[in-house]
Computed example of a mutant assay.
Amino acid sequence: MLRREFFSFAAAGVAAAPQNAETEAIDVAGLIEQIDKTIRREVPGVTRVEIIHDPANRKMPLMIAAFCD
């Protein structure tokens, strides 16, 4: 059975990232690592987290999937 969870705490971490990419480079790899750790800490039973980042796709630039295998 599939269950969807909406990670408002993960979204808050992304929103806290610098908004102006010209003035400060965003460490996407570090941000993805933080999101992974936060999801595993906040949602018990998560065994695998997949984070896909595609800045060229304006409809879905960031997708987070957490699995309980």
Rank of each mutant, 00 (worst) to 15 (best):
T23A: 09
I64D: 06
M60V: 15
Q19E: 13
K37S: 10
A10K: 00
V28Y: 10
F67C: 04
G30P: 01
T47A: 08
N20L: 12
A29W: 02
R58S: 11
E24I: 03
M1W: 05
E33Y: 02
F6E: 13
A66P: 07
Q34T: 06
E42M: 13
R3S: 11
I26F: 02
E5V: 10
F7K: 01
F7Q: 02
V49F: 03
P18E: 15
A11S: 08
E5H: 13
K37V: 07
K59R: 13
F7P: 01
E42N: 12
I51E: 05
K59M: 09
M63F: 03
A11W: 09
E50V: 07
T47G: 15
T23K: 14
E42W: 09
I35M: 10
A15H: 09
P55Q: 11
F67L: 11
A15F: 08
R58N: 10
A29Y: 11
I64R: 04
L2Y: 06
A16T: 00
Q19R: 15
K59A: 10
P18I: 04
A15S: 11
A56I: 05
R4P: 04
I64W: 05
P18Y: 14
A25W: 06
A10S: 10
V14D: 02
A21S: 13
R48Y: 08
L62Q: 05
D36Y: 04
E50A: 09
D69V: 06
E33G: 07
M1P: 05
T23C: 06
E5L: 13
I32P: 00
T38D: 06
V14G: 01
A16Y: 02
P44D: 15
R48L: 08
P18H: 15
V43P: 01
I39R: 09
A21M: 09
F9R: 08
A17C: 13
A56G: 09
I26L: 13
M60I: 14
L31Q: 05
R48V: 01
A56C: 03
P55Y: 01
M60A: 14
L2R: 15
A17G: 02
E50K: 05
T23H: 10
